[in-house]
């Protein structure tokens, strides 16, 4: 499994955090996701056969947030 940090802009409260954790967390190949409101990011542990930095970033972007992967 790999891990990635994605910067997330636009979250303002805990319900934003929960929405992302639940929505992205149920994707195939996502083992763990921890979203931080303070750090404005999402730390995701994933299976690189099923997800890529681009698909994870797009999943968060699609929800209406600005997401950029730090690499």
């Amino acid at each position: 499994a790999r891990s990635i940090v994605i910067s997330v802009e636009g979250m303002t409260c805990h319900s934003c955090v929960q929405a992302i954790e639940q929505h992205v967390g149920k994707r195939n190949g996502v083992h763990n996701i921890k979203v931080s409101l303070e750090d404005k990011n999402a730390v995701i542990i994933y299976d690189s056969k099923l997800q890529t930095p681009a698909t994870l970033q797009e999943a968060i972007y699609d929800m209406g947030f600005d997401a950029t992967s730090a690499g």
Partner: peptide, 14 residues
Amino acid sequence: MTCEGCSNAVTRVL
């Protein structure tokens, strides 16, 4: 929606 973050997200997807 519970706050402006939520309504901003709605604005963006629309």
